[in-house]
Write a protein that binds this DNA or RNA. Structure first.
Lengths: 139, 139
DNA sequence: GACGTTACGCACCGATCGGTGCGTAACAAG
DNA sequence: CTTGTTACGCACCGATCGGTGCGTAACGTC
């Protein structure tokens, strides 16, 4: 972070982009946000709506979303406990801005993505391609 | 993945969204894509343009982008070696679709995000808030 | 012949990520 | 009085992530 060469400034300074992409860095964070797009949900509802997340990780995920100001938390003094999570204004702007754009992209280009992944699938390793491509005088 | 309750179907089936967010899951992948938005670049140029990435991780990053069909790789049989990376059509569609949306969001709401993060910063831990909020009859 | 450059590979390492399992405080229902 | 429910916490664990350091094949330069 302390080394600024001529070129590096362009993207290191664009850390604002990283601040945004980091919001998608953890597996379940975007899914949890998407699960909240229809309105407030209790913790238990979220768990089943997401499907496949562990209890501990759900806590961590919600903690991050709270820390990033993307969701609100309301606890009611009832028994059994009742806690509702909902999107903040900031969270909503993220969901129906960039995340909706991601959704559209997946609808339009998802097949291409899957085809590309399938086409690669183990058949080429970088080393192999290198030895045939960069050093063709071998063999 | 084998357990389908009533609610879970909604989002587990929306794994297409996860397929997209997973493209942003690794720290440097989106940065590398952004670095290629202006045209083809040699590996060394990318390294300094990105700034802060290690040599090994750059290799892994490019390998993933290749495997996902987001970038092309062209090797010239020269010495010293010369390899150029560029965006595929799929990669370009991702960059100037969702990634540009992310960029716009950061420009508009980046400050709110940073404020929220700063406001949280260590002052509240979830456990503390819980003991004051959910169990107010204590103390 | 020693040296530098480029684009890698490989061994090793600490930190983080996500998962499992178990405990708990509060109350309501049987 | 035992059992169930909810929303957590905590200890532990294997896998993955990103970083460091070192080696190498090919060739041009001095």
């Amino acid at each position: 972070m302390s080394n600024y060469e001529s070129h590096s400034y362009e993207l290191v300074a664009d850390c604002r982009l990283r601040a945004a992409t980091d919001l998608f860095a953890h597996t379940w964070d975007p899914v949890a946000l998407a699960a909240l797009r229809t309105g407030p949900r209790r913790r238990r509802e979220l768990r089943s709506a997401i499907g496949g997340i562990s209890d501990k990780v759900l806590t961590e995920t919600l903690h991050r979303l709270l820390a990033n100001g993307l969701v609100n938390r309301r606890a009611y003094a009832e028994a059994p406990p009742r806690v509702e999570y909902s999107l903040t204004d900031l969270g909503e702007s993220l969901v129906d801005g960039p995340m909706r754009a991601l959704g559209r992209w997946t609808l339009e280009h998802g097949d291409e993505l899957f085809e590309a992944q399938e086409a690669w699938h183990g058949r080429y390793r970088l080393a192999d391609e290198l030895n045939g491509d960069l050093h063709p005088n071998r063999a």
